[in-house]
Nucleic acid binder design. Structure first.
Length: 655
RNA sequence: GCGCCCGUAGCUCAGUUGGAUAGAGCGUCGGACUACGAAUCCGAAGGUCGCAGGUUCGAGCCCUGCCGGGCGCGCCA
């Protein structure tokens, strides 16, 4: 198989290196690359340059000596030196093609990766349950969900967690809003029929002004927060009602994007089950937590650690005995790596259409549920999808693990950091916000839930669907309305999901409706469109030649017995790009960069579009060429289908 | 003050972990539908990779300094 050729060649070259120069793989590891240009070949290496000094010979001489007596595998058609020291290899196109067609007809184009015995936990979304989700949350959830899909493709067993901070000040603020601005209690709030997350969005922004109005108002926040943490009172009941309703809204929003979860750990349960106590016990026993007796932090339990030769101190327990955010996070991370010695109880929170259940944590054993929860937590690898502003805190948490002796676990805990989504000043003004003179001069404005400044996730999805629907209706006047709606939805999802992963994690996205609503060029719809066309070719082909699927499959099967024909460059480039799917997925995961995989798929779609415009498959006179083209289109479609699935992008029937 | 990140075409971004002539999209200009669907394709213009040194056979990528921008560093969460 083609995906194995690169590895095989590396082995082969490595062996020859030992034979010709006595260089072991420990001394030098051969790295096979893809040459910059097609005419150079399909694979290339540059080790003659790198070994020139050690071997005391010119790169050219090394390359020559290496090649004299080198026995290349049978599929290597051409091997030569270039540009004073590169070694380029070109493979036999027809052999690779036949091999790929056999894999296609046998249904094993992308064999599964070795399943991984361990468990990988991915935590993402983590939206404060006090208002509607916005574009910043979309980047988190889409990045997180795409990572989950990529991990699964790479053979990992993944558990998806969505942490619910239901006892924080953000929820308290909305409770204050309902009680003191709206004069509403649990019964009235439960009866609200309007979009609950939107109601809270506006209310949350009003509470910020309410606090500014007087000291007494501002004090309400602390009082409410205290009552929420204490539990067992009407304020806590209201907070729970709000948080639960909002979580349901968030799950609905994410469901529109095919994003699902396995478990929702709730902060209130971390408190009630005293996760911190056992974590604190471990920290004290190890001497990682120390009680300060003097100085500004007197009375606090702190963690001291060395960072770049400088000592840093982080407070874990305040002098009033309460635990800081960092402290709670260490306890939670310990649970995730299976070293807390304490667990949640669980209850089903929601059942998805396909029967999958998302569970929520609870503090007490579930009464009489016939469903038994899976074992949650205890991951061998942990990915925390959190924006880059939390880098410092995440480092402190991992340092905490190391101080407790969990160095391997800390090494397998990843802060999957990404830059935030901000708004262009123009976009903020479009949304009806008055910007200060200072903000107007800036390149971007930060989204702010407190100010109510932001683009709501569902509003954006609605606008995408409306625009897609107009385009669908223009192109497909005869399409039934329900199919048109479905298609518009698929296009909206494709556009949004691709938009959020096409940027590298370190790139700050300055959001603008013009960019996000674009369906041309490097966008999700471009990829979807190319897949739809490829699928159509298969349909039209069978229709035109009066074949059923079995007959077409038989014809493709017979292809490997036919005499070789010359594969044109553009066909070859399309084929090899499609066959690099596994390589691209592996590299994307190794580099922890989803944008790399997105770019790979985009390039693949470009090659197909190019091929599509140049060659007419059904109109092709030569029956062998026609069949070869059809096979390549099939391979392309299979690759695109698999690739788009990794990005969570659906393929409409028509568009 | 300390730490992290960024600076590449008019705009938004890639750049396979140091490789060959720095690539896409948008925008601009000019072309291609009586053939599988033009949400497409082809062509053109557009670059001192922030600046200056250094390491290297080779630097957009590594090191040092400077300039410009963003973020983080709380007995908030």
């Amino acid at each position: 198989m083609y995906y194995r050729i690169k590895d095989e060649l590396a082995e082969c070259l490595q062996a020859r290196l030992a034979e010709a120069f006595g260089i072991t793989r420990e001394q030098y590891r051969v790295q096979v690359q893809y040459p910059a240009r097609l005419e150079f070949g399909d694979f290339g290496v540059s080790f003659p340059f790198e070994l020139a000094k050690v071997l005391r010979r010119s790169p050219q001489q090394i390359a020559q000596q290496f090649l004299d007596g080198f026995r290349a595998p049978a599929y290597v058609r051409r091997i030569e030196t270039a540009a004073g020291g590169y070694i380029n290899l070109a493979v036999d196109r027809w052999l690779v093609f036949q091999d790929a067609v056999r894999a296609l007809t046998a249904g094993r184009l992308w064999p599964e990766f070795e399943p991984d015995a361990g468990k990988t936990i991915v935590e993402h979304t983590n939206i404060n349950p006090n208002k509607a989700a916005h574009i910043g949350h979309l980047r988190n959830a889409i990045l997180g969900d795409s990572l989950v899909r990529l991990l699964r493709f790479n053979g990992k067993r993944v558990e998806v967690q969505n942490y619910i901070d239901n006892t924080g000040v953000q929820v308290a603020d909305v409770v204050v809003g309902f009680r003191h601005l709206e004069q509403q209690g649990p019964a009235e709030v439960a009866a609200i029929e309007d979009r609950f997350d939107y109601v809270c969005w506006d209310l949350y922004a009003r509470v910020a002004h309410f606090y500014e109005a007087s000291e007494a108002n501002a004090r309400l926040r602390g009082e409410v927060l205290h009552q929420i943490e204490a539990g067992d009172n009407e304020v806590a009941e209201l907070a729970d009602l709000i948080a639960t309703r909002i979580v349901n809204c968030h799950l609905d929003t994410m469901e529109r994007l095919d994003i699902r979860y396995d478990v929702l750990p709730r902060e209130s349960d971390i408190l009630h089950l005293h996760f911190w106590d056992t974590a604190f016990g471990q920290l004290k026993a190890r001497g990682a937590a120390e009680l300060e007796t003097a100085g500004p932090n007197a009375g606090c339990w702190v963690m001291r650690y060395q960072k770049d030769g400088q000592e840093d101190t982080k407070i874990l327990v305040r002098s009033n005995g309460t635990v800081t955010y960092t402290g709670k996070d260490i306890a939670y991370q310990l649970w995730k790596i299976g070293q807390l010695d304490r667990d949640f109880h669980y209850e089903p929170f929601r059942a998805y259409d396909d029967g999958h259940t998302v569970w929520a944590s609870r503090s007490t054993p579930a009464d009489e549920s016939d469903l038994q929860p899976p074992r949650f937590g205890g991951g061998d690898w942990v990915f925390n999808v959190i924006d880059v502003r939390q880098a410092y805190t995440q480092n402190v948490v991992f340092e905490g693990l190391r101080r407790l002796g969990y160095t391997d676990e800390a090494a397998r805990s990843v802060h999957f950091a990404y830059e935030i989504v901000a708004l262009s000043p123009r976009c903020a003004q479009e949304l009806g916000f008055e910007l200060s003179e200072e903000d107007r001069q800036r390149a971007h404005v930060e989204v702010s839930g407190r100010k109510g400044l932001g683009v709501k996730a569902d509003d954006l999805l609605d606008r995408l669907e409306e625009k897609a629907r107009r385009e669908v209706d223009v192109r497909n006047p005869a399409m039934p309305p329900d199919q048109a709606a479905r298609t518009a939805r698929d296009i909206a999802v494709g556009a949004l999901r691709y938009f959020m992963v096409r940027y590298s994690r370190k790139a700050l996205i300055v959001f603008d409706f013009d960019d996000a609503l674009n369906f041309d060029g490097e966008t999700g719809p471009y990829l979807q469109y190319s897949a739809v066309r490829a699928r159509n070719i298969g349909l039209k082909y069978r229709e035109h030649f009066g074949q059923d699927e079995a007959a077409t499959a038989a014809a493709l099967d017979g292809l490997s017995a036919l005499p070789a024909i010359e594969l044109p460059d553009d066909v070859w480039e399309l084929l090899t790009q499609a066959l690099k799917l596994r390589d691209a997925a592996r590299a994307s995961l190794a580099g922890q960069e989803l944008a790399a995989f997105a770019k790979y798929l985009y390039t693949l779609a470009q090659r197909f579009s190019n091929f599509y415009n140049k060659h007419h498959i059904i109109g092709e006179e030569d029956p062998v060429r026609r069949l070869v083209f059809l096979a390549v289109v099939h391979i392309y479609y299979q690759g695109m289908q698999r690739g788009l699935d990794i990005l969570g992008i659906p393929i409409p029937e028509r568009m």
